[in-house]
Design a protein around this nucleic acid. Sequence first.
DNA 1: CCTGAAAGGTTCAAGCCATAAATATCATGG
DNA 2: CCATGATATTTATGGCTTGAACCTTTCAGG
Lengths: 136, 136
Amino acid sequence: MPAAEREICGLVNGLASQIGAHVRERAVKLGLTAAQATALRELTGPMTMSELADRMDCEPSNATVVVDRLESRGVLERRPHPTDRRAKQLILTPDGADLRKRLLELLSEESPLAALTPEEQGVLHDLLQRAIVRRA
Amino acid sequence: MPAAEREICGLVNGLASQIGAHVRERAVKLGLTAAQATALRELTGPMTMSELADRMDCEPSNATVVVDRLESRGVLERRPHPTDRRAKQLILTPDGADLRKRLLELLSEESPLAALTPEEQGVLHDLLQRAIVRRA
DNA sequence: CCTGAAAGGTTCAAGCCATAAATATCATGG
DNA sequence: CCATGATATTTATGGCTTGAACCTTTCAGG
């Protein structure tokens, strides 16, 4: 791997850190951690643990911990899945839905990609999508 | 923040995860964790804790922990800094230098950006560099 | 001098994260 | 029906990561 590629990897990680900081900064205003905020953001509707972990881009075992905290805080509930007794269905409580709404507003305030024009963002999007290895 | 930007953020995090997995996969062959491998990779010569933390893109307190493990493994030494008694100088042991050499070889084997042509990598490099907010 | 602000490191608490192993349930082929 | 493998989730463990608090040393003014 040439030095140029290693430099790109560093930049990718740097930008990812920047995005993470952006989320963390806003999440803390609602008493949430970055991971909890990510989970809440991805909970667009009832879903299973696996699906949430997939959307959060993390291992299911990690999602368990994050959901534990959100549940004990009253943000969501773990209900038995209607058709699959192995799975659980995550449902936002009314309080959780309110919290999610406020979170989305906070996250919308500023973009961590503000330095790029929409055209540049388009190019970046395509490059990233092609760089990512498709996994089964 | 429009949905398009959120999607880009997801892609950036996805690619960062992929890069992290690439490092971890190779580091484990040497009995190292990803963070330890990153530290070892960045130790291009004697440097202070601050400088290493800066290169690793992490907090100094985190570098302390990672260096602790590398030190107790005999990979490096913490020496008093020649001119600043607050600082410490990190020096690779002979074993550490060997290990670093083998690590660099492993990391060179494959690129996590192999799906992109050199030209595309150039474009990506520029976009990322511009997207990253300069911090003092 | 000397005093206060700043910088280098470490420690601590809280939480994130991946891996491996365990449990329970499904689904398929014989 | 039953064995076997796959899937959904959890637990346990080791290590990473941040942010705040703390100590020492350095440095810039007064």
